[in-house]
Amino acid sequence: MTTTEESPTASGSGSNATANFQATRTYRAGQRTADPERVSAVVSAVLDGINRAVLDHEVTYDEFQAVKQWLIEVGEGGEWPLFLDVFVEHSVEEVAARSQDGTKGSILGPYYLPGQARLDTPASLPQRPDERGTPLVFSGRVEGTDGAPLPGAELDIWQADEQGYYSGFAPHLPDGNLRGVVVTDDHGCFEIHTIEPAPYQIPTDGPTGKMIEAAGWHPWRPAHLHLLVSAPGHRTITTQLYFRGGQWIDSDVARATKPELILDPSDTGDGTRSVEYHFVLEQG
């Protein structure tokens, strides 16, 4: 991702992600009663892991105080959704996948925004008149685990642009850019015209970035398409599709890539790339 004056900051991205999470989360305090035994087991395991790390690595008081300050800064910067989505969500998704059939899932990430334009297939994602990037035609079918097509299924799709920026999180992009909800036809088929996204680095000017730098890690995610694929009476799939040979594909900072989710587009001869992918939804 090229650094420009329009680059989203960690603070801006964090506050947007936090606001979006609070507006769209389904859980609200008081709506459900937590099982005390479950809370005790999970919280105890987390605390045991932290204390074991302190003892095993002989954490000093100076390091302990630095951690407390870092935790405060993450909260003040609204970066908890960013931090948890990048470093923890892949494990939560792995647990969920143990009891799921159909297309492989992946993490949602912090850049989802609901309420995007609804588009009938074949569809072109909203984009700027001078949108840069290699044209991509992404097509396929949505079907059930029995192979039956699912007409009227929805593909809520969003992606970064050719510079690695997401609309809604980068101030220079118009709202809804490269976002849309595409509806399959009577045969469960879809065709989406867009561009190939670029890899992007998570914002590094905040406390999450400071942690990455201190650990000597890289902050990059490989290029990918985000999707929520849904149909009445079926479990919604949350997934990401990557591109074969793409940079960072084997060292994703979010550890979210899977072999089943890698696309292999082909050139059509006119500067456009084309690829098919079929989604399978289980009933639920």
Results as ranks from 00 to 15, higher is better:
residue 32 R to E: 13
residue 109 G to T: 09
residue 236 T to F: 01
residue 54 V to L: 11
residue 240 Q to M: 11
residue 264 D to Y: 03
residue 126 P to F: 13
residue 30 G to K: 03
residue 95 V to E: 09
residue 78 G to I: 03
residue 229 V to I: 11
residue 75 G to P: 04
residue 191 E to A: 10
residue 109 G to S: 08
residue 276 E to H: 13
residue 167 S to K: 02
residue 221 R to V: 00
residue 219 P to A: 15
residue 77 G to R: 06
residue 177 N to A: 12
residue 103 T to Q: 09
residue 133 G to R: 08
residue 55 L to G: 00
residue 121 T to A: 14
residue 191 E to T: 14
residue 95 V to D: 03
residue 207 P to D: 01
residue 164 G to K: 01
residue 64 F to A: 15
residue 47 L to A: 06
residue 116 Q to P: 00
residue 262 I to T: 13
residue 257 T to F: 06
residue 118 R to M: 12
residue 114 P to W: 08
residue 190 F to M: 05
residue 213 E to Q: 15
residue 114 P to E: 02
residue 102 G to E: 11
residue 127 Q to S: 15
residue 42 V to R: 12
residue 8 P to T: 00
residue 15 S to V: 08
residue 91 S to A: 15
residue 213 E to S: 15
residue 206 G to R: 02
residue 4 T to N: 07
residue 146 D to N: 14
residue 273 R to N: 09
residue 250 D to E: 14
residue 223 A to N: 05
residue 186 D to H: 09
residue 62 D to W: 00
residue 7 S to I: 00
residue 234 H to N: 12
residue 127 Q to R: 15
residue 44 S to F: 06
residue 120 D to H: 08
residue 217 W to P: 00
residue 66 A to R: 15
residue 221 R to A: 02
residue 68 K to L: 14
residue 41 A to M: 08
residue 86 V to C: 12
residue 134 T to H: 07
residue 99 S to T: 13
residue 248 W to R: 08
residue 42 V to K: 09
residue 217 W to R: 12
residue 127 Q to K: 14
residue 118 R to C: 00
residue 218 H to G: 12
residue 174 P to W: 07
residue 3 T to H: 14
residue 197 P to E: 06
residue 125 L to A: 04
residue 239 T to R: 03
residue 190 F to T: 00
residue 126 P to S: 11
residue 266 S to H: 12
residue 136 L to F: 07
residue 159 Q to N: 05
residue 82 L to K: 02
residue 148 A to P: 00
residue 101 D to N: 10
residue 233 G to V: 05
residue 31 Q to D: 11
residue 284 G to V: 11
residue 38 R to V: 11
residue 43 V to A: 11
residue 67 V to M: 14
residue 189 C to E: 09
residue 195 I to P: 04
residue 35 D to L: 08
residue 33 T to H: 11
residue 79 E to V: 02
residue 198 A to H: 05
residue 24 T to C: 07
residue 229 V to G: 00
residue 210 K to R: 15
residue 192 I to D: 02
residue 204 T to S: 15
residue 163 Q to K: 10
residue 107 I to S: 07
residue 243 F to C: 03
residue 54 V to K: 02
residue 81 P to H: 04
residue 5 E to A: 14
residue 78 G to Q: 07
residue 226 H to A: 10
residue 57 H to I: 00
residue 199 P to T: 05
residue 29 A to G: 04
residue 206 G to P: 01
residue 159 Q to L: 11
residue 231 A to G: 06
